[in-house]
Each structure stands twice: as structure tokens, then as C-alpha cells.
Simulated scan of single mutants.
Amino acid sequence: MQRTRRQILEYLKRRGKASLEELATAVELVPVTVRSHLSVLERDGLIRTEEERGKVGRPHFVYSLTPEGLETFPRAYHVLAARLLAAVQDVYGVEGVDRLLQQMWDVWVDERQRRVAGKDLDARVAEVTQICSEQGCLAEWEAIPEGYLLHQYNCLTLRVSSEHLRLCDYEHDGLRRLLDARVERLKCMAAGDQSCSYRVTPSDDATEA
């Protein structure tokens, strides 16, 4: 990200909100230049503008971070998730981890079943690809003679999955259940591949490969 815009985001992260004049002072630029940077940040959905009224004088505008803007700062969700899984395993054993992951993916599948209900396999593959993309998985699919290939180029749980490969198994099973088809895992990012890729083929009983 451009240096001045990053400085603006960092200032807003520390202060919560700020006026144009405050930001101009903070980044040591004239207000008109800062305003152009703010326009870009607002266009990108990283900041928002609010009108603030004081006890006297005209109202003025202040800027603050949006949820998307907050997400530009590092998070350690993967550390927390890995520690939670390790703690569950210490207390309840591997069976406890499996029960937890099974419950999580049961909910994931149940919440999305209505989006694929009544559709043929071609439409289900397209819809599941869209679902994965909405989650940030950079998913795409392609037709092949025997069925379809489903690729995901971003793994949301990569750092955790690298330590707990069972996560990949439950995702595999969740996709199989949602697609109601035979799903064979070909590549896995947690194992060092460039993508998580699956071959999807019709199956009367949706038996996992």
C-alpha cells in the first residue's frame, strides 16, 4: 500500500477518528493532498466519513476505519485457533478434536444446503465454487470429460491446517456432502501444493474417493 495511505490508516487505528486537518498534521502534508488520499481510501472501502457537530460553529467531518480497514492490520486468528485445537486435544484427545471439527462442518453444510437444493451437478459445482469464492478462497471450476475440477487458490486456514491436517479432511467431506457427488482431492495447499484442487464426478451414492 502507498506509504501515506498506510500512515493515515495507522493514525486512525491509534486515534479512532480524526479530521482532515489532524491527518494532514500527522502525515506532514497539506490538506488538499491528504484529501486525495482519503478519497482513494474511501473508494476502496477502508475508511468512512461522518459529520460531527460541536457545541458551537459549523459541523465538521471526521474519518474512521471501516471493518475492512481494520482487517488491513495483522491478526493472529491462526495462533488462537491452533492453540484452541491443541487445548481440546490435550483435554479430550483426538476424538474430541474430531467431534469439534465434525460439528463445525455439519453447521457449514447445513447453512448452505438451500443454495444447492434441487440443482443438477453442473449447477451445484458452480454454486459451491461461488460459495467458496465468497469466503475468500479464490475458487474456480472447469469441466473435464469425466466431470469437473474445483480449484481453491487461497486457503483460509492454511497456517492451522499445516499443523492439523484433519481440517483438510473435514473440508473435503463438507464439499462432498454439499456437492452430493464423488469428490477426490488432488492437491492440498497445507501439503505444499499451489492450490486445493478436487475432481468432482457424478455418483449415485456420493461415495468419497
Rank of each mutant, 00 (worst) to 15 (best):
M1L: 14
R3V: 01
R5K: 15
R5Y: 06
R6I: 05
I8Y: 07
I8S: 02
L9C: 11
L9W: 00
E10M: 03
K13G: 09
K17D: 08
K17N: 03
A18V: 06
S19T: 11
L20E: 03
E22Y: 05
L23Q: 05
A24F: 05
A24T: 07
T25L: 05
V27W: 06
T33Q: 01
V34E: 06
V34T: 04
S36F: 02
V40F: 04
L41K: 06
L41W: 04
D44T: 02
I47C: 01
T49L: 13
E52V: 15
K55H: 07
G57C: 10
H60A: 04
F61T: 07
F61C: 11
L65M: 05
E68L: 11
L80F: 14
A81T: 14
L85A: 02
A87E: 12
Q89G: 08
Q89A: 13
D90N: 11
G93E: 15
G96F: 02
D98I: 11
D98Q: 10
D98V: 04
L101E: 07
L101N: 02
Q102G: 13
V116I: 13
G118I: 08
A123I: 03
V128T: 05
I131Y: 03
C132A: 08
S133M: 01
S133E: 03
S133I: 02
L138C: 10
E140V: 02
W141F: 12
P145V: 10
G147C: 11
Y148A: 10
L149T: 05
L150D: 07
H151C: 03
C155H: 14
V160G: 04
V160S: 11
S161E: 14
E163I: 05
E163Y: 06
H164Q: 09
L167Q: 11
D173P: 12
D173Q: 07
R176E: 05
R176H: 07
L178F: 14
L179H: 04
A181Q: 04
R182I: 06
R182Y: 15
E184L: 07
L186E: 06
A190N: 09
D193V: 10
T201F: 10
D204C: 01
D205F: 05
E208R: 15
